[in-house]
Amino acid sequence: MGVAMLPALSRAAGVAAPFALAVVIGAIVLAATGHEPLGVYGLMASEAFGGERRIAATLTAATPLLLTGLAAAVAFRSGIFNVGAEGCFYLGGMVAAVLGFALGDWPSVLLIPVALVGAAIVGGLWLVGPGVLRARLGVDEVVTTLMLNFIAVDLTSWLVNGPLLARGSANSATAPIAVGAELPRLLPPTTLHLGFVISLALVALYGLWSRFTVAGFRSRIVGLNARFSRAVGIHVSSTFLRMMVLSGLIGGLAGGIHALGLVHRFVAGFSPGYGFTGIAIALLGRNSALGIILAAIVFGALSSAGATMQLFSDVPIEIVEIMQGAVMIFAVAKFGFGQARGARA
């Protein structure tokens, strides 16, 4: 009784609050450094959404975040705090790039799916270990998946400096993928590519899956209360394992799409933390499909506006990073607040 009379409204407010707070913090920082907050925000908005090209750049930047956010959400909703999407992203990117040049003479319709599926499979396999450890022995997945990130990043970094280093290249990079492996551009000359549509479709599919399928139902109930799930006969440990691997598959696919769609090769430092940003996106979006899409676009807008803004103003790019960081902090704070309230009411 008396609990949340307007659940939809309060949920919307809960999602918007971290952004609002981040905007306020950003404004304080801007004002303190002698900038005009409103003016800078106006510039940012127009850099992110003013015109077709800028929107395309924002959506390009949002593309990897859609999938890393999805990878996190799939795990979170079933009660698994998988923070290993970053590692999967690296491995998936590398596998897709290697397949993209090794099988370069294959036709695109075959090559692209094979490279992407390969990327996803490697990402999924990468998390089998943490999944089994969690499901069978109750080993904390935060630790195992976090540590595997370092291994994945350093393993791929070693590979592109050694066995996979492009001939004649001084940079730590593989050879570029074959043209036939590149994901088609949607709005040339912008970099927006087919990967955005694939990612968007997968997030939408997830929305349907989570609401309308038996597996989606089970993973949600397991995430809400594992002991209850076991008592009503839902396989808790196999749900944990499956959701962990699914999360890894999506993380790997995210890397593969990033390699084939935008970078067109694999390089050391392939991801500026997309896997971790995905965690913030899942938390902000409350694991809902719509929430993930909105949060990914906002983060995409921040990074694409930040990149171009400093070309045209003396606003340092760091302000964007401060805002991103603030959003993440408030997203997590909000998350904790929601948990605490949930436990009490």
């Binding site: 139902f217 109930i221 809400l224 209360n225 002991r227 209850f228 799930s229 008592a231 949930g342």
Partner: peptide, 13 residues
């Protein structure tokens, strides 16, 4: 509250 029901899930769930 912990095993017989999932309090945070809906009645139909």
């Amino acid at each position: 509250s912990e095993e017989g029901l999932c309090l945070t899930a809906s009645i139909s769930d």
